[in-house]
């Protein structure tokens, strides 16, 4: 980090990747498929809306969110029932309406709500954490026309960390995939 700071104006900036801009979903999907088949592994696509099958086309798989949610849901259930058990059975047992002290039917609703609340927290915060958001800045934002990635354009970025990455080769490869334009994106200078 320090090195980058001191020598930033001496060395050429790091490359984030090469980005192609597409006009349609079909083009983007075809491009992602082609890139995967061509052996690229480190890539990301940017689109204004979720496209089903795109991550598969990119050859990327991730199913952590459901597990986080399942775990947080179970945590919620256990939290709910143990809170109820400790406070209403152990700490301060009270006879209400002649019902048993440990009254599962009546403990059910709070237990359920705890489960839902914890699962929702798991889904929400887990998803953002895995996505690495909020994030102040990202190099991809310096791509030309990238403001249209939230409107009507589709981008595919083959990232520099890919083992097969070579600027010219990637640019040539992407140009064949019917893009509107191809550009190289740099890491921001710090």
């Amino acid at each position: 980090m320090e090195q980058t700071l001191t020598h930033s104006n001496l060395r050429s900036p790091d490359i984030h990747g090469t980005v192609a801009e597409f006009e349609t979903v079909a083009d983007l999907k075809a491009a992602a498929n082609a890139a995967r088949k061509n052996g690229y592994v480190e890539m990301d696509a940017y689109s204004p809306f979720p496209i089903h099958g795109l991550t598969e086309a990119m050859g990327w798989k991730n199913n952590v969110v459901p597990w986080i949610v399942a775990l947080s849901g179970i945590t919620g259930t256990i939290t709910g029932i143990s809170l109820e058990y400790y406070t209403a059975v152990i700490d301060y047992p009270m006879n209400v309406g002649g019902k048993p002290i440990f009254t599962l039917p009546m403990f059910f609703v709070p237990m359920f709500e705890f489960t839902v609340l914890f699962s929702a927290f798991g889904a929400f915060f887990g998803m953002w954490a895995l996505n690495g958001l909020p994030r102040y800045h990202h190099p991809i934002f310096s791509t030309p026309h990238f403001e249209r990635a939230t409107c009507d354009r589709f981008f595919l970025c083959i990232e520099a960390k890919d083992p097969k990455y070579d600027s010219d080769e990637v640019a040539a490869f992407l140009s064949k995939l019917n893009p509107l334009n191809v550009s190289e994106v740099e890491e921001p200078e710090l």
Partner: peptide, 12 residues
Amino acid sequence: SFAQFLIIWSGN
């Protein structure tokens, strides 16, 4: 089923 049971059981 649960709602019917709970209401009848609780009302007693």
